[in-house]
Design a protein around this nucleic acid. Structure first.
Lengths: 211, 211, 211, 211
DNA sequence: TATGAATGAGTTTTCATTCAT
DNA sequence: GATGAATGAAAACTCATTCAT
């Protein structure tokens, strides 16, 4: 019986448990990235990890918990990666460019994670059939992008525009940059990112572009 | 046994056959739009259409052929709809705006089709497990958008930029405009489309915007 | 897709469907009687019937529906059998004896059914874990037995006593007569039934025993 | 490796071992009583006892041995309880009444044990699929009841009747008194027991009933 | 002694597909 | 042409049991 809830201040999981969960999550990411959400059966994930099917059931309540664990790990990683690189940027324009460039770097380095995240976002459903993560799940990301856009509008760097539309389009463009690169591995991701940064810089009507 | 390939000069499908296929395709669209790709079993599609499961198997080689039929019908409709509205536009800027605005109109009027198309695009796989329609499937759309962008660059309306990146981002922004509106039905789709048109007009550095 | 609800006045199930359901129910009865409730997996029931597992799923919503169908068929049979033999009896004493003797006859002739019924009654549970048929499920039987006892009390044949306790004990004694006979097939069921009839005749303090 | 068979003259189990087994048996009783035989997984029993699943496997050869241990403990308790109260009774009629009344008291005080016993009796199976405890398992009880009945017949208190049928019915009536009370907790168990005593007193044709 | 971890057999259920009528 | 019926593979999940530490 794996302990589910335990007293505050105690590490909830043993070292080995943490390692196994991480291993399973990693295997799930790779399998989803390669075979898609529907192709990622527990059997395949277990086989890919070189363990028995039962191990997954032992460490996770069910497939849903595994998927949610993948999401929360990848999501946290991604946000941390990008925010770290945005630190210290002062102008909204710089923040904007950095967000895009750093996002592309992250995608290159974590190709499978990003792909798996996308698959889960658009396929995982609640027991009642409604999407588990809808576009609504991106709300947090939208808001952090809107923050940048509003900053630029307040400082006068950016023209007036609807920040929500800009954020939605921004996220969409980044997701598809990744998808396009996944489908065309010879495509130059860095160049794409720079072009995209230019695109949004113009879109926001930035008064001064990078020197 | 239904004849699959038949002599030239004969209409390949009878009237009744065509009608049945259309009925099944329509049912498939609605079911996919409501329940998602994974939730769209043949049983559900048949039930929704008020016919027996066997009919689908009779008229289609298999589920895959049905899905591909959905794609080709919806795809053709969409292109026809938007191209019709773009006819007569003279400047690249006008073409660009029209493409976006008309696309939004089409989405509003064909909500289920658009949603089903997206589901199939991102979920249907070849027997070997590779995606049936990757981003690569959008190649045709990319090229038609690139055509507009190149036109603008040649006429001097647009600044220089990588047309492929612009096209990928353009399509992404439109797809997600739809997804966002689907998740937030109270969202003003027309306003979003106008904002998006402004966004790309600025992004391409259009010399003269609409007044 | 099997039709679930259909217009009034139409036979709901085709001939073949009815036959298959009956065949599956019969197989289920035999398997439960032999292997017990827990040993009656769908796989075993299907194998015993010489059909594929899927057939059961095709004709029944799930295992629960099959079990409930077994109950309702066997239950109806049993009640019909015994009531038919009780018809025409005039005194409460005669009704009482007949109920017991006819019950024993029915058990002998429908050994597996009775056993299966008992297994399902004491093992089938609702999704939430509560028993599907508790002792409460015997309420109907209790009442029909109480009817006999009250008749005897009103006619002065029987002494005063708590009819519910008498009915509960009566049913218990019959169930266990069957169970005992099942475990000791050489046991004389008819003689047991006659003894049991005597037992209850004395228990109710019958003024005049059978001539 | 826990020693299974050990030299004569040694206490076969250490104090701690005995305590653990008792704790596990107690937990098993409660879980079976609440969730039924099928719902009593080792995992649930361990969790309920606040120990790890492995402990059960360590102290018992397997689930079957645990179940048999439950049976033998509860059975011994029950017999001891009732026999103690029957001591000193002189007439067969008094013994009969006492057996029933004391049985009811025991049920009230050991509700979970009685329920668990019933569940195990009717569900536990040998590896080959045959019931581990059939009605045959009650042989000992039958004989002790028959002893009372024969006593009454020899002393002339009771009429002639088949003592085995009387014993089987007696035990059945008591089991179901408990089951009925379990399903209807507001039911008056003591009153039921008194009625049952009257029932059997009349059934045996007792010459002098209690005033 | 005790435990967490792992295993693999077995359960129900879903589903695309095939086929006789 | 259309349908009901049947199939069997694959899915997620449960569970008693085993084992190294």
């Amino acid at each position: 019986m794996r302990p589910e809830n335990n007293p505050v201040g105690q590490n909830s999981r043993s070292f080995i448990e943490t390692a196994r969960r991480a291993q399973i999550v990693a295997s799930a990411i790779e399998v989803i990235a390669e075979h898609g959400f529907a192709g990622a059966s527990l059997a395949r994930i277990a086989e890919h990890a070189g363990i028995s099917k039962g191990v997954i059931s032992y460490h996770f309540t069910g497939k849903d918990e595994l998927m949610e664990e993948v999401v929360s790990q990848v999501y946290a990683d991604t946000v941390r990666y990008i925010l770290a690189r945005m630190e210290g940027q002062e102008t909204a324009t710089a923040l904007l460019r950095t967000q895009i460039i750093a996002g592309a770097q992250h995608m290159r380095e974590h190709r499978a994670q990003v792909k798996a995240l996308g698959e889960i976002f658009s396929n995982l459903r609640l027991p009642d059939g409604r999407p588990r993560y809808g576009v609504a799940a991106s709300e947090e990301l939208f808001q952090s992008l809107e923050h940048i856009y509003r900053l630029g509008q307040q400082s006068g760097e950016f023209r007036p525009f609807d920040v929500r539309v800009m954020a939605v389009s921004h996220l969409a463009a980044m997701d598809n940059m990744f998808a396009y690169w996944s489908a065309h591995p010879e495509h130059d991701l860095e160049a794409h990112a720079r072009e995209l940064a230019d695109l949004f810089e113009h879109a926001v009507g930035a008064r001064k572009t990078r020197s």
